[in-house]
Computed example of a mutant assay.
Amino acid sequence: MLQARPSARTQPLKRRDSEPDTVSAPLRLTPVDPLTHIGSQIDPDRRRGRGATINPGGRYEAEQRISEDDGWGTLGELPAFKTEVSVEKPRTIITRNDSPDISFDRSINPYRGCEHGCVYCFARPSHAYLGLSPGLDFESKLTAKPDAALLLEKELSSPSYQPRTIAIGTNTDAYQPIEKKLRIMRAILEVLAKFNHPVGIVTKSALVQRDIDILAPMAAKGLVKVALSVTTLDPKLARNMEPRAAAPAKRIETIRKLSEAGIPVTVLVAPIVPAINEHEIERILDAAKAAGAREAGYVLLRLPLEVKDIVQDWLVTHHPDKMRHVVSLIRSTRGGKDYDAAWGQRQVGSGPYAWMIGRRFEMAAERLGFNSTRLRLRTDLFVKPEKEKAQLSLF
């Protein structure tokens, strides 16, 4: 059931504990060893079908709440993490940015949090602004913006609005599972189609096929492109790393369906995780090209803020023999740190290992004919709304 939640921009945030009030959970501060930290791992039965193995408090929390069995076996009675959706009522829906290393200056995020549960998701730290955990809370305590389409039409109708491509899915996936029922993304597309407004979509969901009836006519006008993120072709790895996203085969099928409908598709090999999926770069590009993708890009794993501990705990759980090697390689691409947020470096890293990854990608993409041309979406077809007819004079 949807529950109302005030906008984070207009109302003070209250702390929400991730455990039920009926369970005693002593507070303690825990130091973190970046190479051996396992953290307070959640029981596998409680997090089945989720990506993160922990649910740490956000960086704005003064203390960490850790559940410990008091000897009575009460932790075994805790319920599994279920998806909860709250309603957010923002005042505007278009978010602006001036980042010099990305190709768009505006975006729309219909949802906060993402049920796909991708363990590496760089958007996880944003959940700390809501007083929630970037761990399992990010995957299970979601926020939806059902008025997004109405707000969008209002903003596009402003006499001062100047059209440029709107990016959707750059933070959390607009086609995550709850979209099947809520249909917020579809309503947004209907508004964009009405105004002939260009849009770029990034997703790893096969649900985007549902909206081909809207996207295909927009594509015929040069108003849309879709990027499919394909992290791996290994279904077992995908299930562990991004448990509720579409299976790899479904993503390749989605590339094919979109391409057959005349919708330009980009494949994103993202993220490349050192020693985990880097060996698949060429295979992913081969499969995507055969399915009809025209352009290709890649992103090296990013570990901002809380994502670092979440990924390291995931490695301890699923790849304990590779954990130290992966961390060492990541640091070699980030100047010896876990993450470097510098413009131009955060997406691709630096150093010999990052250079090697970049050259491998470029050589494979060139061999397959990717990126020979770059599609620029049209803005000249944007339809300005008719001004309301002035009220007739009474005299």
Rank of each mutant, 00 (worst) to 15 (best):
V191C: 02
T165N: 08
T172H: 06
K180R: 13
T170D: 11
K194W: 03
A167G: 09
V224M: 06
V199M: 04
K225Q: 14
I201A: 02
L189F: 09
F195H: 14
L207F: 14
E179V: 06
E179Q: 06
A227L: 11
Y175W: 11
K154S: 12
V224D: 05
A206D: 13
K221G: 10
G200P: 02
A193Y: 00
L192A: 05
K225A: 14
I168A: 02
K225P: 01
I166P: 00
K225W: 14
L223D: 07
D213L: 01
V224L: 12
T203M: 12
P217L: 01
D213Q: 03
P217V: 00
D213E: 13
A227R: 13
D213S: 08
P198W: 06
Y161E: 07
D173F: 06
I201G: 00
I168S: 04
I184K: 01
P163T: 03
A219F: 06
D211A: 06
Y175F: 12
K180S: 07
M185Q: 15
V208K: 07
D173S: 08
R183E: 10
E153A: 15
P198D: 05
I178S: 08
I188W: 05
I168P: 00
T170Y: 12
M185R: 12
R210M: 13
R210T: 15
Q209E: 15
Q209M: 14
A174V: 02
M185I: 09
S158V: 03
I168N: 02
A187V: 01
D173W: 00
V226R: 05
V224W: 05
K204G: 10
I166C: 00
R186N: 13
M185L: 14
K221E: 15
D211F: 07
L215F: 09
S205R: 04
G169I: 04
V224K: 02
A206N: 13
T203E: 11
S157N: 13
L156M: 09
A219G: 09
D211R: 07
L223A: 09
F195W: 12
I201M: 02
E190L: 12
K194Q: 13
I178M: 15
I212A: 08
S205W: 02
V224H: 05
E155G: 11
V191A: 01
A167D: 13
S158E: 14
V208C: 04
A193H: 10
S160C: 13
V191T: 05
L189V: 03
I168G: 01
K204D: 07
I212S: 05
N196Y: 12
V202Y: 06
G169C: 09
V199I: 12
D211N: 10
T170Q: 12
V208H: 02
A187Q: 14
L223E: 05
P159D: 11
I166V: 10
V208W: 05
E190A: 13
V199E: 00
I214P: 00
K154R: 15
D211P: 07
L207R: 12
D213Y: 11
K154C: 08
H197E: 03
S205M: 10
R210A: 15
K154N: 09
L223F: 10
P177Y: 03
V199Y: 00
A193R: 07
Q176D: 08
G222T: 01
